[in-house]
Design a protein around this nucleic acid. Sequence first.
DNA 1: ATGACTTGTAATACAAGA
Length: 264
Amino acid sequence: MSVRLITWNVNSLRQRLDHLARITEEQSPQVVCLQETKVQNGDFPVEAIKSMGYEHLSIHGQKSYNGVAILSRLPFETEDRRVWCEKDDCRHLSVTVAGGLEIHNFYVPSGGNVPDPEQNDKFAHKLQFLTEMAAWAKSDKVAQRKAVLVGDMNVAPFEQDVWNHKRLVKSVGHTPVETEHMLALHAAGDFVDVGRHFVPLPEPLYSWWGYRFKEAFARDYGWRLDHVLASPALAPSVSAMQILRDSRSWEKPSDHVPIMVDID
DNA sequence: ATGACTTGTAATACAAGA
């Protein structure tokens, strides 16, 4: 059996239902991990999602900010969530599906404007969150299971993960300390960076283009902030990866685009 | 040359994204 999985920061689920319907119809993923749903559980658009063919939902949302969800055509064998940085601000959900596949959906804090944990609590939160992810991967022995970590990790770790490394190396999302934390996470679980496995360095690879500069997508001023990390036990089964760039040019897009992987 | 946008909340700005 093969599982097709999509991860996507939708920047408001209720604003993106039409895009989600189109993507799920065109690609037929069995599992969809969403970030920045920006909707409380009680207001989750259950009927719209079920009409797209996703009967099994794991949701963790709050008012206004953050929020994650896992939509699935496969039943969940287990569902879990963890509190990170002693804050339950709706940044993680995990499920297991048949065959022992463990799926973790993350929304790592963006980190604010100033890349200094002394001056900026949001940046400190981001570094702590990544530190806790790495510590968990190690202590929970994630590397020994068939696990995939997906989501908006808000770090572009390699030079070719941003459109201009020199210019952006002091910008939050691409600073050396964030890159170190991200690579420490990779090492903690012996994870394979699936994006870079299929599109090796030094080829540019992006998943996010900002809204503020109108020509950002047209000029390909992108960042790779969204990631799929596969445990060593799972990585050989990942047969394909695609970044669905086209959706960034649709009307009223999210600033992030979906990443899709096929797992045999 | 990521500024200048988008979203949710609440009430015409503000917070947050990254």
